[in-house]
């Protein structure tokens, strides 16, 4: 049986999270169908057809799907999923919104946020905010899964030539309707949603010096965070704190500057894909978790980093 993957897109571009979901699906089965449901989203279907590993692109192009409303999308997916062994979506806000609804209508469980494929019915997923990893086996005929992107290397976006099949089914029950949307306009992303986070610790010396980090953040489109020590020292406000009682972040890239790496802080960022530490104390515990460590005076290294990005 084949796998149905729900594509993440904005009606013009296929989003990267789809590629991670495809990669996860490839570990289960080779026969992958990618559903592009949207409005005037032909361009997305074309991009989807080029993704390596995809056998077929199902294109459901109708205004009912324009805003990915869960009620309409769910009905469509349920109707399609009878022919599949697995239904997979990236664990994005759309995927998380629609897929449990699909699972309930299929009378099967959903396994959320998988980080590893053990076999076609057994998966690993983080529980307790990543403080434990559960291995879960599905006993349902159809496995419904959401995929944590950072856990799977993206599938190759170019080179494939999958057939595009139009789906005529229109599900529009008008239970809900789109009112509006507001794309985050802030120059810097939210700490918990950012792809790149640069954080400062007590080594920053004072609050004004955080401007050094902001300049780097501007170049990388990063959010700026802080360790508890920096918050406690009054350098920056509470809401910038990463760690124990602050926020848990898991960006693609985490840059820790002048942070020693107290366990509270490590607990808040250890799920980041790549960790960089810049600290003048080579004994700092942060280096034990960093992928790339630079022993240097941050007041020299950070401006240099900014200049070279």
């Amino acid at each position: 049986m084949a796998i149905l993957i729900i594509a993440e897109h904005d009606n013009s571009t296929l989003k990267g999270a789809t590629l991670n979901a495809v990669a996860a699906a490839c570990q289960i089965d080779a026969d992958l169908d990618l559903l592009v449901a949207g409005a005037e989203c032909q361009a997305v279907a074309e991009q989807a057809s080029k993704v390596m590993g995809v056998s077929k692109v199902l294109l459901a192009d109708h205004s009912a799907y324009e805003h990915q409303l869960a009620e309409n999308l769910c009905e469509l997916v349920v109707e399609l999923s009878r022919n599949y062994s697995h239904v997979i979506a990236p664990a994005t806000s759309n995927g998380k919104n629609v897929l449990p609804r699909v699972a309930a209508l299929l009378d099967v469980a959903q396994i959320s946020d998988i980080t590893s494929v053990e076999s076609e019915d057994t998966f690993q997923r983080p529980i307790y905010a990543g403080n434990a990893i559960a291995t879960v086996q599905s006993q349902d005929p159809i496995k419904v899964l959401t995929v944590r992107g950072a856990a799977f290397d993206a599938a190759v976006a170019e080179g494939g030539a999958a057939e595009i099949v139009a789906i005529a089914t229109v599900c529009n029950d008008e239970l809900s309707s789109f009112v509006g949307e507001e794309v985050a306009v802030s120059d810097r992303p939210e700490l918990t949603a950012a792809k790149v986070v640069i954080s400062g610790g007590r080594g920053m010396g004072n609050g004004e010096n955080f401007s050094l980090l902001e300049k780097v953040a501007d170049k990388l489109g990063a959010a700026v965070g802080a360790s508890r020590a920096a918050v406690d020292a009054g350098f920056v406000p509470n809401d910038m704190q990463v760690g124990q009682t602050g926020k848990i972040v898991a960006p693609e890239l985490y840059i820790a500057v002048g942070i020693s790496g107290a366990i509270q802080h490590l607990a808040g960022m250890k799920d980041s894909k790549v960790i960089v530490a810049i600290n003048k104390d080579e004994e700092a515990p942060i280096f034990q978790v960093a992928d790339y460590g630079l022993v240097a005076d941050l007041f020299e290294a950070v401006p240099e980093l900014e200049a070279k990005l």
């Binding site: 469980a109 529980i127 990543g130 434990a132 879960v136 086996q137 250890k270």
Partner: peptide
């Protein structure tokens, strides 16, 4: 619907 096979601590970085 599902079976919890095991729970393990996260891999240390």
């Amino acid at each position: 619907h599902t079976k919890l096979v095991k729970v393990t601590p996260p891999a240390e970085r």
